[in-house]
Each structure stands twice: as structure tokens, then as C-alpha cells.
């Protein structure tokens, strides 16, 4: 699926637009701002989260960024390959650099506030 079909948050997360279980990560813009990513602190699988919760911390040598849940729901999978190769987020933020998979509980209503690719481009270009 092309990342141009993804949904985006103001805090630079992307999430797949449909499905029971959806991958999410951080945008190319966000990885660029952070620089070389050296560590991703991943949540526990099975954790119930609310939209906007801090669920992940992504770190470069000189910065740490909280990553927020785009939907309420359950964390059903984490990308454990990132533990050995966190730089994958830099190289391929929309593909192999996905961070967690979330099973949204209120996808329909919570999609309202998310941006399309074009809107997100306006957001970061502004």
C-alpha cells in the first residue's frame, strides 16, 4: 500500500487507513528531524491505549521523541526487528520501519481528526 493513502497526525505519526489491525510509525519528515535513530522503546503487546497516549519513544543521540497513539485500542504487535536495527526507521519509515500494529476500538470516530497525505504535506510545509 502506498504511504500516500495513509492517515497522518499533527505529531507526525502515520497509520494505515483501514483494517482491523493497522500498522503505524513515524513519518519521513519526523525521522529526518530526529536524525540517526539509535533506539525505539516499544510498548508491551496487549497494552490497551487511548488515542493520544505516549506509546513509543524514539531516540537519536541528542533527542528523544514521544510517539502518540493515533487511535484508542490494543497494541497487538511490535516490530521487534527494530531492537537490533533501529536505523530502519530512518531508511524506510513507511515500510520496514513500521513500529507497532494497533487494533483500533473506535476507528471510525477517531479518524475524523487525522490528515490525508496532501493535508499533511501542507501541515509540514507551512
Amino acid at each position: 500500500m502506498s504511504h500516500e493513502t495513509y492517515l497522518f497526525t499533527e505529531s507526525h505519526e502515520w497509520v494505515e487507513p483501514d483494517g482491523d489491525v493497522r500498522s503505524m510509525g513515524i513519518t519521513d519528515h519526523a525521522q529526518h528531524l530526529l536524525g540517526d535513530i539509535v533506539y525505539a522503546e516499544l510498548p508491551e503487546v496487549g497494552r490497551e491505549v487511548a488515542k493520544g497516549d505516549e506509546i513509543i519513544v524514539v531516540e537519536s543521540p541528542k533527542a528523544a521523541a514521544d510517539v502518540y497513539a493515533p487511535f484508542s485500542g490494543e497494541i497487538v504487535e511490535v516490530n521487534s526487528a527494530l531492537e537490533g536495527e533501529p536505523g530502519t526507521i530512518n531508511q524506510n519509515p513507511y515500510g520496514e520501519g513500521w513500529i507497532v500494529k494497533i487494533k483500533p476500538s473506535k476507528a471510525a470516530e477517531e479518524s475524523e481528526g487525522l490528515m490525508t497525505w496532501d493535508k499533511y504535506q501542507d501541515h509540514i510545509g507551512g
Binding site: 533506539y39 531516540e59 537519536s60 543521540p61 541528542k62 533527542a63 528523544a64
Partner: peptide, 11 residues
């Protein structure tokens, strides 16, 4: 100095 993201000047 490494793992500075644990420290007060960043976190």
C-alpha cells in the same frame, strides 16, 4: 557521552 536521552538536558 552516550545514552544522553536519559538525561535531564534532553528528557
Amino acid at each position: 557521552l552516550t545514552l544522553q536521552t536519559r538525561e535531564q538536558h534532553i528528557r
